[in-house]
Amino acid sequence: MNIFRLAGDMTHLASVLVLLLKIHTIKSCAGISLKTQELYALVFATRYLDLFTDYISLYNTLMKLIFLVSSFSIVWYIRHHKIVRRSYDKDQDTFRHYFLVLPCFLLALVINEKFTVKEIMWTFSLYLEAVAILPQLVLLQRTRNIDNLTGQYVFLLGAYRSLYILNWIYRYFTEPHYVHWITWISGLVQTLLYADFFYYYFQSWKNNVKLELPA
């Protein structure tokens, strides 16, 4: 475990907790894409299949449980909570996210490190995580006004993946034969997707104006 990875995991944890806190306290999910949350729940469900078979460390198991419980409870809140669900804007959140799932699965069947069910599901979760933010970014473009909690949520998500890239670079130089192109490329694609959001987030922060994304 290196500082980049720990910082990445903590940032990722913070992003999920910010979102849960927002939804739980103000009982609203305005500006949040349910599609992205469903994709993230699927990412964790397919990536943590080894939760009960391979014990790596208490930290690893604990974090996996937290991510699984929080992502599924966010989906539950938006879909079923009697107050929160009313603030879900399904007319705006129209990204056909099923069109993301199939290509990622097919790609995982073709490009993977080993043709086993667990490995393919794990690779699928990597590809899906790279594109899972798209419905949320599209929704932000559409609704244009971003309340600062949602902005912070997306910012923390992007920061977590950027820190993971630093972690991979660090591990590449410090651990012999730590080479995993699939993880690195999908992680890089994911971070690049945030790049333009980061730009506008930073601009709004620098000029101290409300975050606006161009149409």
Binding site: I56, N60, M63, W122, R171, Y178
Partner: peptide, 10 residues
């Protein structure tokens, strides 16, 4: 068995 080193990440 895939190398543990990779699967230890979240």
């Amino acid at each position: 068995m895939p190398s543990k080193s990779l699967k230890d990440e979240l």
